[in-house]
């Protein structure tokens, strides 16, 4: 691609910004320009992707444990009651199958005893994707709000069509959870009676006419599915 001298000048300024050599005041000026110039931002992304492999020269150093607590404190107020080790990857990776089974029993006892150490609400997540990744959606059920939050990472409906979200529990007929919002992210409210059906069920997206399925059952192709997991 041939660039004009002005574009080349811009491109070099972007590169200088990316590698970080500019003095502070010049960085600030450039950041202001970036925020209003999408062509510059596109060049920025290209340079960032070019240079990122150089960061592999830096030996990773795990941040001290208290850092995550401080971050969560800043973001969410008081620290989460859920014990840290439940979320730790190293912990999960380290479990053998046998110890996992023992752990499951121990945890269920823990819950049955009515301890409130774990999250009181049941939250769920599902990742729905089509075989070719043409449609991809992440759904997160927030028990406190009774809402399903949605982030459609890839895929848009055809003109005059909509995506509809379905809950499928075992061999029962699909239950409509509503038409997906046209924006990339949005929320759907879950009827309280459906909450008990989430565990172990499947979410699916079908292609429907505007306004959603006229029959109450999917009428178009099922485009993506995903299992619901408790978190």
């Amino acid at each position: 691609m041939t660039q004009s001298p002005a574009e080349r000048g811009d491109d070099m300024r972007v590169a200088e910004y990316v590698i970080g050599v500019l003095p502070f005041d010049e960085r600030l000026v450039f950041e202001r320009e970036l925020s209003s110039n999408s062509a510059l931002r596109a060049q920025l992304r290209v340079w960032e992707e070019h240079f990122i492999p150089l960061s592999d020269d830096i030996a990773p150093v795990v941040a001290p444990r208290h850092i995550l607590d401080s971050i969560e404190n800043r973001l969410f107020g008081k620290p989460e009651v859920q014990p840290n080790w439940l979320q730790s990857l190293t912990f999960w990776r380290g479990l053998s199958f046998a110890s996992l089974a023992a752990f499951a029993i121990a945890t269920s006892l823990y819950i049955q005893q009515g301890k409130t150490g774990l999250n009181s609400g049941e939250n769920y997540v599902a990742e729905l994707s089509a075989a070719n990744d043409a449609l991809k959606l992440v759904a997160y059920y927030d028990d406190q709000k009774g809402q399903i939050k949605l982030n459609r990472v890839a895929g848009t409906p055809a003109t005059g069509r909509v995506f509809e979200l379905w809950l499928i529990e075992g061999k029962n007929p699909p239950i409509s959870l509503g038409v997906l919002p046209s924006a990339q992210t949005g929320t759907l409210t879950l009827q309280a009676s459906l909450k008990a059906k989430l565990s172990g069920a499947v979410l699916a997206i079908s292609d429907e006419p505007t306004g959603g399925s006229p029959t109450g059952q999917p009428t178009g192709a099922v485009l993506a599915t995903g299992n619901i997991h408790a978190i």
């Binding site: 990773p60 941040a63 995550l68 190293t90 997540v125 992440v138 927030d142 982030n151 978190i231």
Partner: peptide, 28 residues
């Protein structure tokens, strides 16, 4: 996927993302 879940304010995803990336970002 984790970042997409974080965009939905999924705290568990945030922790996983932190677990997986803090060593890289801290070292930088």
């Amino acid at each position: 996927d984790l970042i997409a879940r974080v965009a939905l304010k999924d705290r568990a995803a945030f922790r996983l993302l932190y677990d997986r990336t803090n060593a890289k970002l801290f070292s930088v």
